[in-house]
Each structure stands twice: as structure tokens, then as C-alpha cells.
Write a protein that binds this DNA or RNA. Structure first.
Lengths: 288, 288
DNA sequence: TCCACGTTGAAAAAAAATAGTCAAACGAGG
DNA sequence: CCTCGTTTGACTATTTTTTTTCAACGTGGA
């Protein structure tokens, strides 16, 4: 019986504070608990005596014995992944584990949905600072688009996240030049307004359109230069945005590496500016 | 420079007793040294003061720092089995596939960071429509928080996503009642403003605070009733939000299932309303 | 609303670990 | 064989850590 299992088993009997401790211990297991009581108390947000009560409640004679057991596990663990197997078997029945496993499968299937060549082309477009980048997503997917915007802003200038309100679009559209890049996110329940925007951008402004969508392909695809069709199915009532997130995070990594010194410098400047004035933020995260 | 190397390098300068200690430490490295001074002294066949002299001689401030260093090494070392392999193969030619694989691994590790019990408790809180729900995230994580808000809004009423601007918070905070739920997202580069909000909410309004953070634990943990500590490390310069997304999607599935007929009815109504008038959207996705 | 119970953290006590002191033991060189 | 310098461990002081005590607090039930 590992400490982890013991804690899991005792969870139902724990009080609120004790549960916080349990979380802190399990969150960074087992190293999180290889500290003094004080430090663990600090990290868990409870008092030191609560830690003592916690360890005795889950069946140890004292904090030291508890730590000794953890070190013992560590030592055993380095020999055989026994604990891992046990944990896995234990968690077969729960939803979280199951969901995690399924999600992982979907994420790994992303690789077959995006070819390396396509990825590289998109990275090249986004890394080219002579091109402005405009982003927009649908009702739900706009939050994903915004994740990309936020990160890109840290890496390079001229990132424009279009506001949700259609009426504000024309201004932005008019400022697009032919060499610019428009990244659209549109998953099923495709939105006509975005399709319209895409068409206008493609036809009138001739900007490069990158579309991130699902395998059923938003109608925007016909106006897009690059279409990334990601898996979104989950076997639940809800589609998953995981692949989209994984995809944009992969993009971020590569775009930032394209000119890392510049990225680093920019982030540092950014931090300085952010920290000095008492936070004066732009309300909705879009640029004006 | 590992402790082992340090010891090896210093060996020539050691006295007989000190060499005994060195042998004892290296013989069962690093576990042999993860004991009290007394035990190590016993095992080495020397006295406790010799141990003290030994550790200071090889350049540590004291026995504790020495042990801490060892634990640190252990922790670094343990990252290798899964991640190091991935890092090695982070090849240019197949970046997407590698990234997908690593991302999948991280997502599947989510299961060990979130226990089923904890998950169930959070689902119960969010499913309880008598509780209003307030959400907020940090600079980047707010987009994740927003994803949750968006979905929750489709499922149930009284979802309030706090605006990014701090000055608008007091209004919302004042409307919080004791039975309400506040969901905060805060990943490293923890933001003081959010911590302040959390404290005020916990102390003044006594609402239930759910914190989604990373294993280093945002200082908000101290004021939170439920702390979800997710893996975010990626071996890239950027932290990943994948687990956070997977987590909230899992939440969504279960919260929506808690009262599926009601959820379904609500979504249908929602669709009708959304499609009929020529889209009049709320600018930033927060409620007024 | 009030009461009884369980939970919590501050403070103090207890225990332990660690560092310091000093004299004895040891060994090298005379 | 003696002397000096080094090393060593018993003893002690100090610091740190852990545990216990106890009062206050919040919670849930009457």
C-alpha cells in the first residue's frame, strides 16, 4: 500500500483542511511532502498542526515516519514501477481517469491530422513579422483563438484579435494587406458571420487565410489557403477543443523559436511594462 | 554539479572518517543520505559531528541543505523516464508527431493529479443551480476560464465571468453570497490581483473557492476550498494549458449530465434565441 | 436563535536534530 | 620515546522541528 493509495482511500474521511493537504501532497508526489511540516503547511495553505493531524489520521505514527515511507517508496520505485501499475488498476473505474485516457488518445491522433509540412508552412507565415496577423473564432472557439492571440502577442508585434462584435470588423478588414495572415477558428455549428468575413477577406483583401476547423470542414474552407482539420470527437455530448489547444501550443513553441533572442527580449520588456504600473488592462483582451 | 560528483571531487582532501561517510553515502546513493545525521553516523561508523564537518567541508551550509540538494536531484532524475525520451526525439523532422505524443502523455497524467472524489465534489458544486458561479483567470488562463464560462452558460443560469478589469470586480464581489462558487484559474506567474480577489472573497463573502493551478500551487491555495493542481510542464519554454482544458471539458460533461433534460432544453432554447435575431452579441463575453 | 460538536490555528511544550566545544586519541616527525 | 598537530567523539548548547494543548471559530441540528 503506497502513501498515495492510502491518502486516496482515506479521502472521504478528511476534513476540508486535510483535503487541501492531501491535494498538495498528491499534486507533486512524493517530493511535495519531502519538506518540513512548515513548508508543506505553507504550500497547502493550512497550519502546521493540521499536517500532524493529517498524517496521524491516515495512519502514520508521525511526520517522520510518513516521510520515511515516502523515501522508501522512492527507493523501491527506482527499481520497479510497481506503484504505477497499482494506481492504474485502482483508477480503472473512475471517470476522470477514463476521460484523461480518452483525451490523451485524441491528442495523440492530432499528429495524423496535421502534416509536418502544413505545420511548417503555418509556422513560417506566423513567424514572418512583416505580415500582420488577424485572429477570430466562433462563439466557443474564439476563446481558443484568443489563447493563440495572447501568446503570439508575447512573441511578436502586429497581432490583432478581432472583436466579437461584427460591426467592428470592417475597420480591421480594411487595414488588411495582401501579405497579411488571417487565422480563423470555426468548429461545427459553423457561424455564417465568420464565413462571410472569410469570404470578404479572401476575395477583397487577398490576405492568406488559415482555417482551423474539424474534419467536417467549415464552409470557410473554400476561401482558405491552409485548412487544419482537427479531431474534436469525444464520445460525449460535447466536442473537445483539446486538439486545437495542442495545435496552437505547438505553433507557439515553433514560432517563438523562429527568432528566440527576439522573443526573449520581447517577453522581458513585456514583463517590465506589465509589472511597473498598477495594472491598467484592456478590458476585453482585444486590441482597440 | 551533483552531490555525487562533488563528493568524488573532494575525496582526496578527506580524512579517514570522512571517507567512511563518503562511502556510506555513495554506496546507497542518494537514499543512504536521506536519513537523520544520527542514522547516517551509525551506518558509517562515525560520530554525528563528523557528518556535520563532512557536509560543510564539501561545500554545503549544513546537513539540511545537503539533503535538500539530494531530493532536488531525485526529482530532476525522475522526470527522465517519460519526458527525457520525448525531449531527445524532439526532432525537427517530426515535430508535430512528437509534440502530439508528449501532449498526450501530459493529458493522461492528469488522472493522477485529480482524484475522482475531488472531481465529483466540484461537479456537485457546479451542478447546484442554487449557487451562482463566478469565474476568473489570470492573464493567459483567463481564456481557459472563459472556455468554462461559455460552456457552463449553455448548461445553467447564473454564470458570471468576471471582467478582466479589476475596477469592475467590487460590484460582482458584493453580489456573492455564501453559498456561491468562485472558480479561479491561476498558473505560474501567479497574479497578485487575483490572489487579492480570492482573499477578499474567502474572507468577506465566504463563498466556496475552487482553484485550478499547477503543482507549485498559487498562493491562492491558502484561501481555497478546493485546489486542483494540474501538470503544466512541457519541456518547452511554454507551459501547457492542455490539462486545464481537459479538466474543464470533463467537468462540462459531468455537469451537463447532472440534469441532462434541463441542459438539453436550455441548449435548445439558447439556439432558438441565438439564431432568430440577426446576432446581437455581448461584446467581451462577460455579462453586464 | 441557541447549543453542541467538530475543526482549526496560535502558542507553548516537547522532542529532535544540528552545531559547537573541548579533551582524548592518534600518528608523524623529531 | 617524546612532542606537536590533526582528527575524532562525548558532551553540551542552540536551534529547529514536531507535537500537544487549548481557546475560538464555524457548522449543522434542535
Amino acid at each position: 500500500m503506497t502513501v498515495r493509495e492510502t491518502i486516496r482511500r482515506e479521502t472521504p474521511n478528511l476534513t476540508a483542511s486535510e483535503r487541501k493537504i492531501a491535494n498538495a501532497v498528491l499534486a507533486d508526489y512524493p517530493y511535495g511532502a519531502l519538506q518540513t511540516i512548515q513548508e508543506l503547511a505553507e504550500r497547502s495553505g493550512v497550519s502546521a498542526p493540521s499536517i500532524t493531524r493529517f498524517v496521524s489520521k491516515i495512519g502514520f505514527a508521525g511526520y517522520q515516519e510518513f516521510q520515511r515511507q515516502l523515501i522508501g517508496e522512492l527507493r523501491e520505485g527506482s527499481r520497479s514501477p510497481l506503484d504505477l501499475k497499482a494506481t492504474e488498476r485502482l483508477s480503472r473505474s473512475d471517470f476522470v481517469a477514463d476521460y484523461a485516457r480518452r483525451s490523451a488518445a485524441i491528442v495523440s491522433s492530432m499528429a495524423s491530422a496535421v502534416s509536418q509540412e502544413q505545420f511548417d508552412r503555418i509556422v513560417a507565415l506566423l513567424s514572418d513579422q512583416s505580415r500582420a496577423v488577424f485572429l477570430l473564432g466562433g462563439r466557443i472557439s474564439d476563446t481558443i483563438a484568443r489563447l493563440l492571440s495572447q501568446h503570439l502577442r508575447q512573441i511578436r508585434p502586429r497581432i490583432h484579435h478581432l472583436p466579437a462584435n461584427q460591426e467592428d470588423w470592417p475597420d480591421h478588414v480594411m487595414s488588411m494587406r495582401r501579405q497579411d495572415v488571417v487565422v480563423l477558428f470555426d468548429f461545427r455549428r459553423y457561424q455564417p458571420d465568420i464565413a462571410k468575413l472569410a469570404e470578404r477577406v479572401a476575395v477583397n483583401r487577398r490576405a492568406t487565410v488559415i482555417l482551423v476547423t474539424d474534419k467536417w470542414m467549415s464552409p470557410i474552407a473554400r476561401h482558405s489557403d491552409h485548412v487544419v482539420a482537427l479531431p474534436i470527437e469525444n464520445d460525449t455530448a460535447w466536442d473537445t477543443a483539446l486538439c486545437a489547444v495542442a495545435f496552437i501550443e505547438a505553433l507557439i513553441v515553433k514560432v517563438s523559436e523562429a527568432d528566440w533572442p527576439s522573443t526573449k527580449a520581447r517577453i522581458e520588456t513585456w514583463e517590465t511594462v506589465r509589472l511597473s504600473p498598477p495594472t491598467m488592462k484592456n478590458g476585453d483582451g482585444t486590441d482597440a
